[in-house]
Write a protein that binds this DNA or RNA. Structure first.
Lengths: 362, 362
DNA sequence: ATGAAAGCGCTAACAT
DNA sequence: ATGTTAGCGCTTTCAT
């Protein structure tokens, strides 16, 4: 281990107000002016080799760290991408963030991520705060926003800043004229219908959709509406059950308990807004010795890691969690490079059939 | 819904290079100079009421968004806190991030979060990148860093920037002179010993610690070492089992399968580096009709939501995930306000005894 | 290949 | 209560 040479750091250096090494300091140490160092940093080939060598050692000796505030302000070029996600605790969105990060890192963009906790009001606040960084692009979740948020987004788009809505893909109605943004995700309507179709195909006629306990999870509600519509179209009975707030496993357990207690014309299949709810219900069914899927079929959404671990394994819908991030990054980079609107994409999902809806399945 | 008044946006306004509304523009619209608007934005009471009114409407009409780059550069005050976490997908660190966010938001600080994927090399890269924002404070995870990272952190501390290591609390050895940073977390050594103690107290003499599959999860390794030491001190047999990479549930299942197959002098209790591994093992034990805890006791770490859902419920160690974030925020704010080093803290954890280690327990 | 001058958008100090 | 003057640290012209 080499001896640290703090000497260079603590001695020379004309430090400004707050004790940081500036381009100036490096330049003085190298016997050139700041602009030469600046050039060296961005286009090393543009400075003579011996000058470069002196700059290199000055850089090392001072421990210079470029000030992005100043750089961005001067160049006017923003390399920040602002991202608004409902939350990060849930691995579902964290993976999307990771995908975005993976796709943008090498292109030199910095990610500014904020979580809205599913609140449109909070989304608006956070968007305002993030806009202060003058991001090169803005990524929001879903197509539902507060009026003010919408206005901000429209303004951004008009000013040429790419705006992408992720985790949704809702083709515009033919006559609609309302502002549309780039969308990268999938149709929750289609998924909701597919979930119903799967259960109907297995012969179920009395269905339920257990909706998310989060009031502002519009995508879950949308799947529920589609589920109900599909059931109705097939002439089956279907109801929506609201799940209580709090721990999702517990909520699932409770919903199952309530449903069983209801008696009368019992439901034979339940679809859930997410796998945590479904797993809770599945565990509770096991505890109550209710046969799954014989007596009651259970279908989740999200294909969380736990889903295939339970017995019976939980049928679920696997989602392009990471792909939404990488595809968004790709679309964004293209748009930024070619200064044209980012292109929308509908990404594939898949209904994974396991034991909880089909006896003998995986 | 009021008609949008885009007219004001698209008409007047001397837009600079890149079409954004500046303080200047607002000032002109309000018939004052930029500094007055600037003042109004920060200390509204310092401007006369009628002026304020004109500024307010100018602000609304133009849709002004302050440029933080410029603001921070001019004021010299950084309000950014840089945070390096191993990952965000795992809810364990996401909650800490949320805690930090909760604690810092109102104080006007912005959080710049990056995930290292448990790689010290990546930590170094990311730290370098984040330093470009000249953060007011830096938060890193754990006390293990690359030499270069360490050097950067020491430099920061020397320059008066608070540096906090979270998720660890390791009191410095008496003679040690090496650079120490503020630490907010808990002792993984203590937890490892407590995990062993719990199993030993239940009469187990042949133990195993199933280590994390992530090579650079030093805190998990440290718990393992402490676990082994405690077992050895008690005269019990203990081994460390490395878990395979990949899905943690599957890894847990595989480890359990291997252990059972080993036969000979069978292990009677296993402690795990995390609850996912432990749950995998628990589910596999159930599948193989191995009595838990009768034949084999299982102890997790992290107290994930799934732990109390399985049967038997998984004993585990509950962690101050959120508190680490809020406490760090508090410590940071104090340090920043009083310009003195942030104060370390050891936060409480608890070994939660459930059915997987104690028959009849919760 | 290097430098000088000007300015990015904002705020700190001093006026007034 | 408001305006003037400088300057944050860097990058862009435009010289040389």
């Amino acid at each position: 281990m080499p001896s640290t040479k703090n000497s260079a750091i603590s001695t020379r250096q004309a430090r400004r107000g707050h004790g940081r090494v500036t381009l100036q300091d490096v330049a003085e140490a190298a016997g050139v002016t700041s602009i030469t160092v600046s050039r060296f940093l961005r286009e090393p080939v543009m400075v003579a080799e011996d000058t470069a060598a002196r700059i290199r050692s000055a850089l090392a000796a001072t421990g210079y760290v470029p000030n992005k505030q100043a750089g961005l302000l001067a160049s006017g070029v923003g390399n920040i991408v602002a991202v608004l996600l409902p939350n990060l605790s849930n691995s579902i969105f964290a993976e999307t963030a990771q995908g975005l990060s993976d796709g943008l890192q090498d292109a030199g963009y910095e990610l500014l991520i904020a979580s809205t906790s599913y609140s449109l009001e909070r989304e608006e606040q956070l968007l305002r705060a993030l806009l202060g960084w003058h991001p090169a692009a803005v990524v929001v979740t879903g197509r539902r926003h507060s009026p003010a948020t919408l206005k901000l987004l429209v303004g951004l788009k008009a000013a040429g800043t790419p705006v992408i809505e992720i985790w949704d893909h809702h083709p515009p109605a033919p006559g609609t004229q309302r502002a549309r943004f780039t969308q990268i995700g999938f149709s929750h309507d289609e998924v909701g219908r597919a979930m119903a179709a799967h259960l109907l195909a297995a012969g179920h006629r009395r269905l339920a959709y257990v909706d998310s306990g989060v009031a502002e999870d519009y995508r879950a509600h949308e799947r529920g509406l589609a589920f109900m519509a599909a059931a109705r179209d097939a002439g089956a009975l279907a109801t929506v059950i609201a799940s209580p707030a709090g721990d999702a496993f517990d909520a699932g357990r409770q919903v199952l308990g309530d449903a069983v207690r209801a008696g009368a014309a019992p439901i034979t299949a339940m679809a859930f807004a997410n796998d945590h709810l479904a797993c809770g219900a599945l565990l509770e069914a096991t505890r109550r010795h209710i046969a799954v899927p014989g007596q009651l079929a259970l279908l989740g959404f999200g294909d969380f890691a736990i889903a295939r671990q339970l017995s019976p394994a939980l049928s679920s819908v696997s989602l392009p969690r990471h792909a939404i991030g990488t595809q968004t990054a790709r679309s964004l980079l293209d748009a930024l490079k070619l200064s044209r609107p980012a292109v929308s994409a509908s990404l594939p999902w898949a209904l994974i059939v396991r034991g909880s809806t089909q006896p003998g399945a995986g």
